[in-house]
Structure formats: structure tokens, C-alpha cells
Design a protein around this nucleic acid. Structure first.
Length: 998
DNA sequence: AGCTAATCCTA
DNA sequence: GTAGGATTAGCTA
């Protein structure tokens, strides 16, 4: 049958698949003898899926012709052109070797042509067939995700990434590489490929290459007009390496004239030979697929004998040097298994009527520490009526442990996969045995472990129905919901239109009880308090390349894991709740921790807009400047090296160039830190200065201008950071993915990044920050009259300090004098040491010691504060903030002097840093009600917190009204709980971007 | 791919 | 000298 228009040819890159599957799929061995068969299994599943079901994948069409292509050997025409081609390829992993042959046998078992040609790579064969098919008007799907094949993509030739079920067509190539497929060859020629040893042009990466091709059209034009390029380094590199680029092009360009034994028409898809295929699958012991094939072809698998398969273990196995550089990264997922939570508020578990908090706490710890947790008793709820019964039981007791399972750790992207509930039937006498738990799967998939999986498991409750029931429960204020790291679940539920009411978070409870002592993750809490080690997430879903998202976890395994989480969480609540009362920490929990859950979830959900154009322009500028520095650096060093490698740099600076004054890091490497380089520069060396500048530029580029756009949410188009409530010891928040608490501000170059954080049209960003809050806290806790007075009078605190210490009048004070006083003030907050101060000010240690002595003479209250704080830490094992938050220092009595000194400094710092953190937490909790009251509820939205600063987005017309409200809330945040001896001062400004607002 | 060390960004 | 998080290199698997 002649191939024609409307036919559809599938070309599977068998060699590429082997490597990718090997890395991307879980290791799997044949049960009977341990033969590694993971890649074979993945391969068979993929073929079966494509042959029977291609229409339902994102390919969307059914094949009429089909072939699997392999590399023949490492001796190809490319090797003749360029001896080093693929030269640095190491031998394939041992487990992979026998699978090369097996995959060829699998292909034949599927009745598919298995094609390879001596002297050519699989890619060339694929290219040849693809062009031939195109010529006769047929469509082509290349099953591979290798970038080397992307040059073949046209409107009728597509690629298909079977592991991600993703079609790669023209738009995808352009999106990924910035050039259309026909320019991929030129792009790769410029960029090169370290895996295959394609040289390319040094200093040209994908971004630059795309830009150059955009400007000059193609490689030859670029090379001939290279003299026009403005950037010196780039121009020279291209001129010098032009021939290398031409060679690279030859290596990268795929041949479309490979002599083929089978012509296109011979690739027509033959019907499956059921028994033959089943025989092979049985030999491999692939049970699930065997059954599936048997039912599809109406065979009785039991009657079919396993085929003899040939296993080549040794070097004879063909296919040693294929592309190992295309390993897929399977997303790992699942949430709720991580962070710690906080205590509960409702008095549901009443305990025994007369018990004191302390005795109840003790009883609970003993009861739950000894209770055996039976993880086999968990229930899987697949029926709405059963779910209703559980919800009714939760209403009855007024208490429920709750946890969600999702396919992502990012609550803004995660989709709900299921949820679990735990109920204490007899809360009056909680022995631990009375707790039962269930998992409600909603969107689990069938065919777990198969490459492409199956569809939705039918036997699950309709998610809409389940969510209706769940909403009623979660929003019911008479039922206390207990979760671990509730902010995740809270935000997830909010995205489903559910606002959780009345909750406790065991992570936050632990944080209040044990900050500094232990971490607050559920697994650790469970081991400490319940004497029980929960199932690890990676044991149910795997990790890394072999990890799957939770919807691909089999429901029975999922139930054991998920229900256990809810069970453990509820037990932890039973143990931790009475301890809060016993330790007198209920107020800290209820006023500084729990209310932040919804406040932060709202802020995270809002996100902030960034201007990607600004960032991309900045990125380009930074790249050019950095490249220029590299040039000069190589010149000065006399050789090319990786400037970003401290190791290589150290060897050049202190070895080759023999510069003096090198210090070593702990691991014995030369230190090349900025301060070392600055010192060298001060002594006249040119290179170190350039390195410092280069580092600054590349830091800004990699961490900010290049990384931030990747965090823009696909739907909201905004950046949503994640705040952690319980990852610092002092009570500060932390921000991650991305960290928006370390956006540059200290120099002009870095500040440009802030201009990319913008308000939506018609709005302004308002930034309000506390002035000197930590020094004010210090003045308050240490009761320092001069400091207090200075803050009351609004005078420059560092100048005042300098004036006190050095007897210099504030008027006309030299900048250097004030700078030293400022360093000392900060030093005090950090638990000053002569060593540290000397370092900071680049002075002798003895001189720094004199400063400190002088400071303490002038401010004796500070020395008293430091001494009493250290004494308290030694006595009690913890220190406290002005709102009663405890920070533990279990190692304060360490016999190691440096460990002890470190703990002492931290203990001195903690009440200051922690109190300031408490103040801003209070401000954040009070902010929304205050704005609401001022009629600004909907129009002023708090977006970010940066330790002493809050950033809002405000409608233009409301800015003047909002600023006084915001300022007032922040300045009065300690009230009415506490009145400070020192006033708090807040500065607020509005502008269209963060740089100008700050 | 997962881990650590080194570095550098913030308050 | 306090408190964090992200990136890169380079090693190990």
C-alpha cells in the first residue's frame, strides 16, 4: 500500500527512549531473576498506548505507518568529520546494557519494524523517513523529545514527548529556543553541546544565539558579517571560532539521504499478533500489560507460553553510546507531608474536668506516646453516603483532623487529588485507640506504574459533590479543623471557594512550644510525641526521576499514607494543645501565629505583578557587561577558566599568580570571598576587582532577572511567593519560591530590579517600613535613657551614638565617625564581639575591643541587658520576646567555647529580632480589620512583608486615605497589649514601582 | 539527580 | 557579630 496524504507515520526514537526511560522511570527488575527491565517496561507501555490509544493522547491521531529506529553503533560519519564527536561519552550504566537487546526484541514482538543502518545515527534515519513522508503529503509524528530532532519540525512533522504526553510543534520549538525549527541547526552550531562534544562558539548560549540569528538571519550571514557585532568579546569569539561553528553545523545537521532497506510503504502498520506479544510480555513478567493485551485481543494469556528471550549482558550488547543527556524530570508532587502546625483554639477535647493544664498535658503525652497506631484500619471512602456519615461524626464531636493531597507542593498551582479526615470518637477519654481516619480519593488515575497511565479511576466520588460536602464542614464554625501546615490547605481550599473557619495548626503549635529546639515537620513531631514513624512520602510516590504525583499513587497506598497524616495530626493536636496552656503560650499562639494563616494565604494568593520586559532588558545588559568582564579577566589571568568556580579562581589567584594574603576555607580551599578580593584589590591587584564586579552582575542576572520571570503564574500573571511561618527560630517569616525578601536595594545596579515590581494600572504600590525598629526595641527592653530620648526627639540615632562615644558634636560630624557608630549599633543587636566588629570595620581587634568597652561605659544598661539575657538563657534554656514568644537555646551550655559563644550571641539577638517580628505580625493581623473599618477593605491589598516593611497595592484614588491608616496600624501595633517606652515610627510612600515606593 | 560548600542577596 | 533563601560548581551515585 502506497503512503499518501492523510496517512500518519509514527517514528519512535528507540535509542533516545531507552536512555530517557532509564533515567525517568523507577528501576524495575524481573521478579524471577533480577534482570533490569525498567526501560523495557516503559517502552512496551508506550508502544501499546500509542498503538491502541494514540487518539486519546495529545498526539490526537491514529498511526497508519509505524517504525522504531535505533542507533547502530558509535562509528558514524560524524566521527570521521570530527574525531572528538561524542568522545567524552562514558559507557552506559550496567543495568541498561541488557535492555538494548530486549527493546529490539520487544519491537519485533509488537510486530513493528526495527530499523538501524550502519554508519548513521537513529536521528538521521528518522530525518530521512520524515522528509520522504512529508514529500508524499503524509503527516509525521516523531516520538522523542531530543532537541537534535527539533530541526525536523514543520507544519506536518511534529514531535511527541511520550513521557510528558506533550506535543512539540512549531510554537513549542519557538517558545523553547527562540527560533523556528529551520534555524535550530544554526542555533545548535553556535551553542554547541557539551554532552556530544559539539564545540560551538565559546561564550554563546541559547539566548545569545537566538538573538544573533534573529538579527542576522542565518549562520553564514552571521559569520560573514561578524565584524559588525558591537560587543568586543562576542565579536572576537565569533570571528575566531567561525570554522568551529561550521564544523559544528555539519555535526548537528541531520542527513536526509540515508540508504534505507525498507521503504516508506513497508512501514505500514500490521495488525498485532496477540499471542506473540503476550509471549514476550510474559517472558518479561509484565503482569498488568499482559492482562491488558490479552483482554484487548481476546486471548487467554494462561494458555500462552513465555517466549525465549535473548539477554546480552556483556559488551556485545549494542547501543553503547547513545544520548544520555536527555533524562526527563518527572514532577514530584504531593503536599501536606512537610511542615509543622500550630495549636487549636476550640475547647473540643475537654480532657478531664478537673485536670490542670499541666496534668492534662502530662496525661496526654503518656497516652499518645504509648498508643499503637494501626495503619491498616484506615478506610477508603468512595461513596457519598459514607462521606456524609464521617462528616456527621465530625459535627458530632466538633473536632476533625484534616489533610489534603494534591499534585503539587505549590498551593497556587496544586490540584486537589483527595483529602483525609480523622475523628476522635471519644474525646473525653482519648486513649489514642478511639481515633479513626479515612481517605477520600477524588482524582486518582488508573494504570499506576504504566508509562502513560490510564484514565481517571471511576470508583471515586464526584469531586464536585465531595467539595460541596467538604465546604459545609470546613466553613462550619462549630467544628474545629486541625491540620498540619494549614496555610497550604487553606489556600488550596480558598481557590475552590472554601474559606476554612475555626482551625488549629499543629505545626504552629509546635513552633510556639519548641522554636529553636526541634523542627516542626509532621514526621519529626510524630516520632517525638507519638513514638510513631509515618510512611514517608517518597515511599508511596517515589522521588526524583522515579517520583510520581499523588494522583498516580494507587489508592490503597494513598489511603495508608493520607489517612495516616490526618490521624497523626489529630493525635499531635491532642498532645500539643494542653501543653500550650500549661506553658502559658496560648496567647502567643492565638494572637501571633494562628491569625497569620489566613492573612498570609491571602497575600500569597494576591501575588505581585512584575514587568518581564524590564527584567529581560536588564538581563541583556547584565549579560553584555559580564561578558566584557570575562574578556578582561581572561586577559589578566592569562588563560580561560570558569570565573564562577571559586576553586579554579583560587588556583589562579593564589597559585598561578602567587598573590599574597590568601586565607583558606574550612575545606582547605582558597577563600575567594568578596572581602578577600577587596583586600587584594586594595593592594593594587587588578584581577580581584574585576571578579567582584563580575560576580555582582552574574548574581543579579541568575538570581533575579533570569529567575523571576519563571515564577510568573500562568493564569494570574503575577508572582506568588510562599511565606513560611515556622522556619526561623526568632519568629520572623521567611519567603521562598521566589524569595521576595532579598530583592536588591543597596546599590543602583541592583535597585533596577525593584523597578520591575509594579502596580497594576490604576494603582500604586505603597511601601511602609518601620524606622530603626530593632534599635527601638533594644532601647525599650534594655531601658536606655539616651536612646529613648533620641527616638522621642527624632534625632539621628547613629550620630547620637557617635557623639556619646567619641565626644564629637552631631553638627558637622564626619561621615566616617557616624559609620563606625552605626556598625557598633548593629553589632550590639547581633550580640557584638570584638572579632566581628573588627572585621566589619576593617580595624584591629584591639581597637574594636576598645570601642565596645567605651560603648558599655556610655550605655551600661546595654551590658546589663546582655548579661541578664545570657543568664536567663542558661537558667531557663530559652529567652523571650516582649510578647512572650519563647526561643530555645538548648546548646547554650555547650562545653565547646565557640558553640557556646555563638549561642550566647544568638540569645542576645533573639529577643530584639523576635520582638520586632512580633510587632509586625501584630500589625499584619490588625491591618485588614482597620482598612475595612476605614472603608478601604476592597481597595487596599497587602501584598508583601519584608521583615520591617509591608507593601500594599492601592487604587490611585485611595492612596492618600490609605497611608495614614496603614501608618497608624503599624505604629500602634503593640497596643493595647503593650505600651512601649519608645515610639515606633513608620515611613510610607506610594509610587508605581517598588524602587520608587521604598 | 541529590548532596554540600561557597558565595551573595535581604532585614 | 543575628536571621534567612537561591544559585553555581563539583562531587557522588
Amino acid at each position: 500500500m502506497t503512503m499518501k496524504k492523510g496517512d500518519h507515520l509514527f517514528l519512535v526514537d528507540g535509542s533516545g527512549f531507552i536512555f530517557r526511560a532509564f533515567h525517568a522511570l523507577p528501576p524495575l527488575t524481573r521478579k524471577s531473576d533480577g534482570l533490569p527491565v525498567g526501560a523495557v517496561s516503559g517502552f512496551c507501555n508506550m508502544l501499546w498506548k500509542l498503538l491502541t490509544d494514540a487518539r486519546d493522547t495529545s498526539v490526537g491521531v491514529t498511526p497508519t505507518h509505524f517504525a522504531v529506529i535505533f542507533d547502530y553503533s558509535s562509528k558514524t560519519f560524524r566521527k570521521e568529520i570530527y574525531d572528538a564527536y561524542k568522545a567524552n561519552r562514558s559507557a552506559p550504566p550496567e543495568e541498561l546494557v541488557p535492555q538494548f537487546g530486549l527493546i529490539r526484541q520487544a519491537t519485533r514482538a509488537f510486530n513493528l519494524p526495527c530499523i538501524e543502518t550502519e554508519g548513521f545515527e537513529a536521528d538521521d534515519i528518522i530525518a530521512t523517513y520524515a522528509r520522504q513522508a512529508e514529500a508524499v503529503g503524509a503527516d509525521v509524528t516523531i516520538v522523542s523529545s531530543d532537541k537534535d530532532l527539533m530541526q525536523l519540525v514543520t507544519s506536518t512533522v511534529h514531535m511527541y514527548d511520550s513521557m510528558k504526553d506533550k506535543q512539540i510543534g512549531l510554537p513549542e520549538v519557538i517558545e523553547k529556543w527562540g527560533v523556528p525549527p529551520e534555524k535550530m541547526i544554526d542555533l545548535q552550531a553556535l551553542v554547541g553541546d557539551s554532552v556530544d562534544n559539539v564545540p560551538g562558539i565559546p561564550g554563546i548560549g541559547p539566548k545569545t544565539a537566538a538573538q544573533l540569528l534573529e538579527e542576522y538571519g542565518d549562520l553564514e550571514t552571521l559569520l560573514s558579517r561578524a565584524g559588525e557585532i558591537k560587543q568586543v568579546k562576542r565579536r572576537e569569539s565569533i570571528i575566531n571560532f567561525a570554522d568551529q561553528a561550521r564544523l559544528s553545523r555539519q555535526l548537528v545537521e541531520l542527513r536526509t539521504d540515508v540508504p534505507l532497506e525498507l521503504d516508506l510503504d513497508a512501514l505500514v502498520l500490521e495488525p498485532q499478533d496477540g499471542p506473540k506479544l503476550i509471549g514476550f510480555l510474559k517472558a518479561m513478567q509484565f503482569g498488568t500489560l499482559t492482562r491488558r493485551v490479552a483482554s484487548a485481543c481476546d486471548c487467554n494469556a494462561d494458555e500462552i507460553e513465555p517466549t525465549e528471550v535473548t539477554v546480552e549482558w556483556g559488551e556485545a550488547a549494542r547501543g553503547p553510546d547513545l544520548d544520555a543527556g536527555t533524562a526527563a524530570s518527572a514532577d514530584t508532587g504531593g503536599a501536606g507531608a512537610d511542615a509543622p502546625a500550630s495549636p487549636a483554639k476550640a475547647a473540643v477535647a475537654k480532657g478531664t474536668g478537673e485536670a490542670t493544664p499541666a496534668s492534662l498535658a502530662e496525661t496526654r503525652v503518656a497516652a499518645f506516646g504509648n498508643a499503637k497506631i494501626d495503619t491498616t484500619a484506615y478506610v477508603t471512602i468512595r461513596d457519598v453516603d459514607v462521606l456524609d456519615e464521617w462528616i456527621a461524626a465530625a459535627r458530632e464531636t466538633g473536632l476533625v483532623g484534616f489533610d489534603t493531597e494534591t499534585n503539587s507542593l505549590d498551593p497556587m498551582q496544586a490540584e486537589l487529588v483527595g483529602f483525609s479526615l480523622a475523628i476522635a470518637d471519644n474525646a473525653e477519654n482519648p486513649s489514642g485507640q478511639t481515633i479513626r481516619a479515612a481517605y477520600v480519593p477524588l482524582t486518582h488515575k488508573t494504570g499506576v506504574g504504566d508509562l502513560l497511565g490510564g484514565g481517571l479511576d471511576e470508583n471515586q466520588i464526584d469531586p464536585r459533590k465531595a467539595l460541596d460536602r467538604l465546604k459545609a464542614l470546613l466553613e462550619d464554625p462549630s467544628v474545629l479543623k486541625v491540620a498540619q501546615n494549614l496555610k497550604f490547605d487553606y489556600l488550596l481550599m480558598k481557590r475552590h471557594g472554601i474559606t476554612v473557619e475555626n482551625y488549629d495548626d499543629t505545626m504552629l503549635m509546635s513552633y510556639v512550644l519548641e522554636a529553636g529546639k526541634a523542627n516542626h515537620g509532621m514526621d519529626g513531631l510524630s516520632e517525638r510525641w507519638l513514638n510513631h514513624k509515618p510512611i514517608a512520602f517518597k515511599d508511596v510516590a517515589g522521588s526524583g526521576k522515579s517520583g510520581v504525583t499523588f494522583d498516580f499513587v494507587a489508592i490503597d497506598k494513598a489511603t495508608a499514607y493520607a489517612a495516616e497524616d490526618a490521624d497523626v495530626t489529630l493525635r499531635l493536636w491532642m498532645v500539643l494543645k494542653p501543653q500550650l496552656a500549661a506553658a502559658g503560650l496560648n496567647r502567643v499562639y492565638e494572637r501571633l501565629e494562628r491569625p497569620l494563616v489566613s492573612v498570609l494565604a491571602d497575600m500569597e494568593e494576591r501575588g505581585i505583578t512584575i514587568d518581564r520586559q524590564i527584567l529581560s532588558r536588564l538581563s541583556g545588559e547584565l549579560a553584555q557587561k559580564a561578558a566584557a568582564f570575562e574578556d578582561e579577566i581572561y586577559e589578566l589571568a592569562g588563560e580561560r577558566f570558569n570565573v564562577g568556580s571559586p576553586k579554579q579562581l583560587g588556583d589562579i589567584l593564589f597559585g598561578k599568580m602567587g598573590l599574597p594574603g590568601g586565607s583558606k576555607t574550612k575545606t582547605g580551599q582558597w577563600s575567594t570571598s568578596a572581602s578577600v578580593l577587596e583586600d587584594l584589590a586594595a593592594e593594587g591587584a587588578e584581577l580581584p576587582r574585576k571578579i567582584v564586579d563580575w560576580r555582582q552582575l552574574t548574581k543579579l542576572k541568575s538570581t533575579y532577572t533570569d529567575a523571576l520571570p519563571g515564577y510568573v503564574h500562568p493564569e494570574t500573571k503575577r508572582v506568588h511567593t510562599s511565606y513560611s511561618l515556622a522556619s526561623t527560630t526568632t519568629g520572623r517569616l521567611s519567603s521562598s519560591e521566589p524569595n521576595l525578601q532579598n530583592i536588591p536595594v543597596r546599590n543602583a545596579e541592583g535597585r533596577k530590579i525593584r523597578t520591575a515590581f509594579i502596580a497594576t494600572p490604576g494603582h500604586k504600590l505603597v511601601s511602609a517600613d518601620y524606622s530603626q525598629i530593632e534599635l527601638r526595641v533594644l532601647a525599650h527592653v534594655a531601658e536606655i535613657p539616651q536612646l529613648t530620648k533620641a527616638f522621642e526627639d527624632g534625632i539621628d540615632i547613629h550620630a547620637m551614638t557617635a557623639s556619646e562615644m567619641f565626644g564629637v558634636p552631631v553638627e558637622g560630624m564626619p561621615g566616617e565617625v557616624r559609620r563606625r557608630a552605626k556598625a557598633i549599633n548593629f553589632g550590639i543587636i547581633y550580640g557584638i564581639s570584638a572579632f566581628g566588629l573588627a572585621n566589619q570595620l576593617s580595624i584591629e581587634r584591639s581597637e574594636a575591643g576598645d570601642y565596645i568597652k567605651k560603648y558599655f561605659e556610655r550605655f551600661p544598661g546595654i551590658r546589663d541587658y546582655m548579661d541578664s539575657t545570657k543568664a536567663k538563657a542558661r537558667e531557663d534554656g530559652y529567652v523571650e520576646t516582649i510578647f512572650g514568644r519563647r526561643i530555645n537555646y538548648p546548646d547554650i551550655k555547650s562545653s565547646n567555647p565557640s558553640v557556646r559563644a555563638f549561642n550566647e550571641r544568638a540569645a542576645i539577638n533573639a529577643p530584639i529580632q523576635g520582638s520586632a517580628a512580633d510587632v509586625i505580625r501584630r500589625a499584619m493581623v490588625q491591618m485588614e480589620p482597620a482598612l475595612e473599618k476605614a472603608g478601604l477593605g476592597e481597595r487596599v491589598r497587602m501584598l508583601l512583608q519584608v521583615h520591617d516593611e509591608l507593601i500594599f497595592e492601592v487604587e490611585d484614588a485611595d492612596v492618600d486615605k490609605a497611608i495614614p491608616v496603614i501608618t497608624s496600624v503599624m505604629e500602634n501595633a503593640t497596643m493595647p497589649a503593650l505600651s512601649m517606652r519608645v515610639p515606633l515610627k513608620v515611613d510610607a510612600r506610594a509610587a508605581s514601582n517598588w524602587d520608587e515606593a521604598h
